Simulated assay, not measured.
Amino acid sequence: MTISNLEKYRDDLDKLLREGASASISLYKMAYGKVYRDAVLRQHKGDEKKANEEIESVQPFEKIYHHWYSEALPLVKQLLPDRLADFIRLYERPKTRKEITHASYRIEDACQGLSGTRGGMVTVDPKTAINLLEQQIAIVEAIKRRFESSLFDIKQLVQADLFDSELDTAKGLLKAGFARAAGAVAGVVLEGHLKQVCDNHSLPKKSGTIAVLNDALKGADVIGLPQHRHIQFLGDVRNKCGHKNVTDPTADEVTDLINGVDKVIKTIF
């Protein structure tokens, strides 16, 4: 059974939240040291072997957090853009910061194990980052709640399932030897998805061509230069399929087009 897009997105969010919980545990371990170890030991009723196994299984905070942040950041940007600035602010240290204080401490500082002192006393350390990480996790949880809410617009998800079906049709045409027709179908899917992405970000569409839509998304910083160039390549192959040229599109070119469109509809929103 093919999993629906809604179920896939929900599963991805659940996985991300589990990784966030692991990052939180790792931060507690780094911030509290012996206190954390004693708490784990109590949980295992004094069994040092089991406690040590659990403690040693916890990955270093900077490693697990950076992986989690790199996965969560584009998700927030795509699905909850009004909280993106808050999400980044909780991680990045202020560029104008002159000293490390409780108000200016960030998760980035905790990743480097930094502390702030005043008068020879430690006034701020990685413990401060615990609340910051909890706020980031709460933002990701808010995205999950959107999927569970009856107010969430599922139009895009239904459309994504339709696009998957149309790409399956394109693959069938290609397998039967109709490369030009397969590329044309894949091009329609790409164009339709880019139009939806422009609507998601309230971007005006002067025309519905792939090139214009691609430029609009790049100009609004919805996509970066690598994605823009990739879509340009896909558009070129699509044009080769849609217009009579000296040379016909090859099966390899159309395969790249179908696979590229499949990636675009699953990564750009």
Rank of each mutant, 00 (worst) to 15 (best):
G224D: 15
R106E: 02
V124R: 10
A72V: 12
I231P: 01
Q232V: 01
K15T: 12
L80E: 10
I210C: 00
E62Y: 11
G219A: 11
G260E: 09
P249D: 10
L27F: 03
K263E: 14
D12H: 10
L217E: 09
R146Y: 08
F147G: 13
V237S: 00
L225H: 08
A184H: 04
V222M: 09
K49G: 06
G183N: 09
R180S: 08
K266C: 03
G20T: 01
M1T: 12
D256N: 11
V264A: 03
Y36T: 01
K50V: 05
T209N: 01
K171V: 05
K144T: 06
D248C: 08
W68L: 01
D168L: 14
G177V: 05
K45R: 15
G113A: 13
R145C: 04
V122M: 01
L73P: 05
Q43C: 11
E141H: 08
L6R: 15
R145Y: 07
I268M: 09
L79P: 04
P249C: 08
T250L: 07
I223S: 11
D199Q: 13
D12T: 12
K263H: 09
S207L: 01
A85G: 09
L217C: 05
Y32I: 00
L41V: 13
K63H: 08
D82S: 13
K206H: 05
E7H: 13
A31L: 07
A39I: 00
A176F: 04
R180P: 07
A72N: 09
C111A: 07
S165A: 12
S207Y: 05
V35R: 08
A184S: 14
N239M: 09
E7S: 13
F87I: 02
P74A: 10
M121E: 14
V188Q: 11
C241I: 00
I231K: 01
D86S: 11
N214E: 00
I139K: 10
K8A: 12
I143M: 06
L157G: 03
G235I: 04
G172R: 06
